[in-house]
Design a protein around this nucleic acid. Sequence first.
DNA 1: GCAATGATTTACT
DNA 2: GTAAATCATTGCC
Length: 196
Amino acid sequence: MRLEPRFYERENVVKIARELIGKYLFTNIEGVIAGGMVVEIEAYSWKERGCHAYGGKMTSRNKVMFETGGCAYVYLCYGIHNLFNVVTNKPGIADAVLIRAIEPSEGIDTMKQRRGNLQNPFHLTSGPGKLTKALGIDRTFNGKFLINNDVWIEDRGEKVSSREIEVGTRIGIDYAGTDAKLPWRFTLKENPWVSK
DNA sequence: GCAATGATTTACT
DNA sequence: GTAAATCATTGCC
C-alpha cells in the first residue's frame, strides 16, 4: 500500500523517520521499476543547525522543504552526489527526512548497471549518494510528490519492532554543534546495507 | 562577481 | 582506516 500525503504531513518528523524504517522506496524510470526497503534514515528540522533551512530561512535550493509533506527534496552535495529527502510537516514548515540507505529488492540488475562494476555488491545502495544513483534519481525529481508514479514509498505490512531499530547521531554534520548530537538517525540493526 | 564550503564517495595504504 | 577529489550553492565583496 502506497503511503498517503497525510502520513508525511504530521508534525513529528522524528517519528515519521522512525516509522519509515522497513518501508519500501521505489522509482519508475521509463517504465523500469527499481527500489527496496529503507534501512537507514535521518530526520532534519528547521529548528536545528543540521538542516539546510535552519531558522526557517528559504533559499532557491531549499525552497521545496517549505512545501507540504510528501514532496521529494533532491539536492546536490559535494558537487557530485544527489541526496534524496522527503519533505514532512505542513506547508511553510521546513522539516524533512533524508533516506541514507535501502536494501535492494526490485530492479537489482538495473541498479548494478547504473552503478557500474562494483567489487562489493553491498555497496550498491549503502549510502545516500549511492542509492540515488542506483535508483536513477537526479535533481529533476526535486519537488515531485510521492503520490506520482515516478517515485513513491510503499508499506508492505512488514512490522519492525523497536528493538530491531538502532538509534544514533547523524552523520557528517559536526558543524551543527550540540544539534549534531541529536539521536535522529535510525538504522535497521545488523543490516549489511546500512552505511558505516 | 568570486572564493569558501560541505547531510559523500572512491581509491589507496 | 585515511585522504583526496569535486562543483553547486552560499555568502560576502
